[in-house]
């Protein structure tokens, strides 16, 4: 029986103000453990907003996000931060590595923040992560000494540091060349194959095609869900 890693129920994200704007409009979604889901859609369709809600970076106006069965809508900001620290790993289009720190220190950052491992154990894991992503010899380099692809791989290693249940990636290949794009996607695919849940926002249909499931978002609603194995399934257009 497959286990649901992440579930969204009637998720709404509204921007209040002089001109109210709905970014995410009543999305229901369940992502299984070890599943690789790609979220696609035109610019401004709400795919990144949905991703931030799923990764607890943002709070929904209505609805519920459950991570590993745990409801999160009533959690305080500090409790949400704790869930992010232990259960979610983030990769963004821009690497967002701390520029004064080495690759290894950047990877150690979430582990040190969590404070659950000893310094030696953290170092060992950090080096192992960098090694598994082909960055062993770059452990002591700073971000400005690395290429774009290498920086993004360090960011992935950082996202994996605390062994999160879910990896959330917002256009992780958006600023990379073809070779680096291929490398990063292969890594994300491997992560999912190893049992962690990966949710990626991408504009690239070829890459999205390699996901287990593709969710196409239009105007903040799910327009279409396409499964790799189950074939194409047209969803009801909500309107």
């Amino acid at each position: 029986m497959t286990e649901v890693a992440l579930q969204a129920v009637e998720l709404v994200r509204r921007i209040e103000g002089d001109v109210a704007h709905t970014l995410v409009n009543g999305i229901d979604l369940a992502v299984n453990r070890g599943e690789f889901v790609a979220i696609t859609g035109p610019s401004g369709s709400g795919k990144s907003s949905l991703l931030y809600l799923l990764g607890l970076l943002d709070a929904p106006s209505e609805g519920e996000v459950m991570i590993c069965g745990q409801p999160t809508s009533k959690l305080s900001e500090s409790e949400r931060a704790d869930v992010r620290l232990t259960k979610c790993g983030f990769v963004f289009q821009f690497h967002f590595l701390l520029p004064e720190f080495t690759s290894l220190d950047n990877v150690l950052l979430p582990m040190r923040a969590a404070g659950k491992m000893g310094e030696a154990e953290m170092h060992e894991r950090g080096l192992a992560l960098l090694g598994s992503l082909g960055l062993a010899e770059h452990a002591n380099k700073r971000p400005n000494q690395l290429s774009g692809g290498q920086r993004q791989r360090v960011a992935i290693a950082r996202a994996l540091a605390n062994r999160p249940e879910i990896i959330v990636a917002d256009e992780p290949t958006g600023a990379l060349d073809t070779k680096s794009t291929e490398q990063v996607f292969s890594i994300l695919r491997d992560i999912a194959d190893n049992g962690q849940t990966v949710i990626v926002v991408t504009h690239d249909p070829a890459l999205a095609a390699r996901a287990d499931r593709r969710i196409h978002i239009v105007d903040g609603k799910v327009a279409e869900i396409t499964g790799r194995d189950e074939g194409r399934r047209v969803c009801e257009m909500a309107n």
């Binding site: 500090s78 931060a81 704790d82 869930v83 620290l85 979430p110 923040a113």
Partner: peptide, 16 residues
Amino acid sequence: RQDIAIMKSLGMREYA
């Protein structure tokens, strides 16, 4: 600002 954002997104609490 970016570092602050990324530290918060990684799960570091605001007061930290």
